[in-house]
Amino acid sequence: MDAKDRLNAVIDNIEKVIIGKRNIAELSIVAMLSHGHVLLEDVPGVGKTMLVRALAKSVGADFKRIQFTPDLLPSDVIGVSIYNPKDMEFHFRPGPIMGNIVLADEINRTSPKTQSSLLEAMEEASVTIDGVTMTIPKPFFVMATQNPIEYEGTYPLPEAQLDRFLLKVKMGYPSSKEEVEVLSRSQLSVPIDELEAVISLDELLHLQEEAKKIKVEDSIKSYIVDLARQTRIDPYVYLGVSPRGSIALMKASQAYAMLKGRNYVTPDDVQYLAKFVFGHRIMLRSEARYDGITAEEITERILAKTRVPVQRLVGQ
């Protein structure tokens, strides 16, 4: 079984539970393969948790869930050292972050302090408590959800921290036909319980390494850079995509190409992923908000006007 078949087996497995959201499953896999994390932005009850659980089960990974609330403390996330009177020592009790696949639910409900503890862990893949650094087991994949920021009682994530998410995805409601199917499936049993792992964690780690080897032609790299630079000069944009964003787009494209069974990245991959990679990295000016223009629309516009490379880059 080559990479494409194995990854598609995972997606098929997820689809048994999550109906009509194949693209979201794909994107999650893409993020996982490129050591990234996903920010899911949507209202409660559309299957975010189910998606992550299905993903975890499919790859046989350890699944943890953190429900963020306004009174959640950083130690609730990363763990705490507790004094054991019996042996008179502090023992580290790992927090829910120490898992393979972590669902950080409603991340914008909690205080910035707690948010940043999570995001640091995401970036470093390790936590430091009482001067001791502990590595989080690999693979480590966080899927954070947030309610749309217009909702009351939320702490919007700071720009720098948003950048740590590889992709921002909107789940959306299922179509009525899909929803009927959802109802039918949950009538008798809970589908998630019947899910079996289709690949092992080791295989997943191997695939992560393989994804890095996917060929990115120089012209494609320069296409990615062109796209990122375009966001920086757009009149509606206050803060454009950082070089970290360019790297993210490249890595995501590599993983996506692998998912599609190719060993090279095409402009189509880049275009498809650009709106998920750039969406949360573009800070708009107030004018854009007055004109009702979203970051996604700006990305679309840039994609439409940036020249797609059709030849090999010569002389560089």
Binding site: P267, D268, K305, R307
Partner: peptide, 8 residues
């Protein structure tokens, strides 16, 4: 179109 990929 300028931003159209070869595939599409």
């Amino acid at each position: 179109r300028e931003g159209q990929t070869l595939k599409s």
